[in-house]
Amino acid sequence: MIDLYTWPTPNGFKVSILLEELGLSYNVIPIDINKGDQFEPDFLKISPNNKIPAIVDPEGPGEHPYALFESGAILIYLAEKTSKLLPTEPSERYQTIQWLMFQMGGVGPMLGQAHHFRSYAPEPIAYAIDRYTKEAGRLYGVLDRHLAEQEYLAGAYSIADIATYPWLRSYERQGQNLADFPHVQRWFNAIGERPAVQKGLAVLADRVRQGPIDEQARAVLFGDKQYQGSGS
């Protein structure tokens, strides 16, 4: 049984959704990022960048336990382990990886910044809000134009869709309206109806933050502790 170290965030949901889609058994180990669990020594041995999600597969390469961090790497690993949701034919495979990298390098970081400056920054910074809201809209536009031509990001449903979908669930907090992106909206609704997606999103759903972030969580998430021992 795979150990999943996670918290109910977009990156965490990527892996729980994929595990459900693949039908793999897994054990959820909550890492409360609001309280600082991500800085505990035992977790840092698995995820040295102090980020969730991470996994430990007891039947990894060579049938030995195998720890892995970084959500994109985990998605590729699990897809290859099961030979599902990542094509083996080269052109289809790299279409999938291409859109996975688009999520990892663009959608996640930029939408995350839009969300941060619109909701979590201790004081409003007009330049940052404007910059990241516009960049979020640009990325939604890229997705919308692409999805006008095919059902899913890489043609068939894949880890690229699983990686991207959780990040778009907070579109309103990113300053976006799905009605402005009809092809994204069609894709978004179709994925949200999948039973495995619904089960994956239910993982630790009772731990989702309700209301504004408190000062303790703010200090842990955005304060100096995350830089301790970084060498900076």
Rank of each mutant, 00 (worst) to 15 (best):
K199P: 11
K81Q: 14
Q113I: 00
I2Y: 05
I162V: 15
R118M: 15
K14S: 11
Q38D: 04
G36V: 01
G105M: 00
L178T: 08
P90Q: 10
S47D: 06
Q176A: 11
D180F: 01
Y127T: 10
F222W: 07
A156L: 00
Y120P: 02
I162A: 06
A190V: 01
Y120M: 15
A126Y: 03
K45Q: 14
G192C: 11
H183F: 08
R173M: 15
P122C: 00
G200K: 08
L111F: 08
K35D: 15
T82Y: 06
V184D: 01
A79P: 00
E89K: 12
D180M: 09
P30Y: 05
I31P: 06
H146A: 09
G137E: 08
R209L: 07
Y165A: 07
G23R: 03
A67L: 09
R207H: 09
Y165D: 03
E123I: 01
W7H: 05
A67T: 10
W7Y: 12
V197C: 07
P195A: 10
D37H: 12
L221A: 10
I55L: 14
A128H: 12
P109K: 09
P212K: 02
Q176G: 01
G192Y: 09
A121E: 08
G108Q: 06
Q216M: 05
E123T: 14
N49H: 14
L85T: 04
A136S: 13
I159P: 01
L201Y: 11
V28T: 15
P41Q: 06
N49C: 11
E20Y: 03
Y127F: 12
L18M: 02
S232L: 10
R169D: 03
L24M: 14
R209Y: 08
P53A: 10
L75Q: 07
N50A: 12
Q103K: 06
A128C: 05
P65L: 01
Q103E: 13
P10E: 11
I2M: 11
A121F: 13
E123R: 14
V56C: 11
G62W: 04
D161Y: 07
L24H: 06
A190E: 08
Y157M: 00
E215I: 02
L147I: 10
A148H: 05
H115D: 12
G60M: 08
G192L: 08
P10Q: 15
V220E: 05
A217L: 02
L168K: 05
K45W: 00
A154S: 12
N177C: 04
Y140A: 05
G137T: 02
R145V: 04
M104S: 13
Y120K: 03
T6H: 08
D144V: 13
Y171S: 00
G155L: 02
G141V: 08
G229Y: 03
G200S: 15
F102N: 04
G200Q: 13
T6N: 12
S158G: 11
E21M: 08
L86M: 02
P212M: 13
I76C: 10
H146N: 01
P65H: 13
R173K: 15
K84S: 06
G231T: 11
I17Q: 04
F181A: 04
D130Y: 02
R218I: 00
F69T: 14
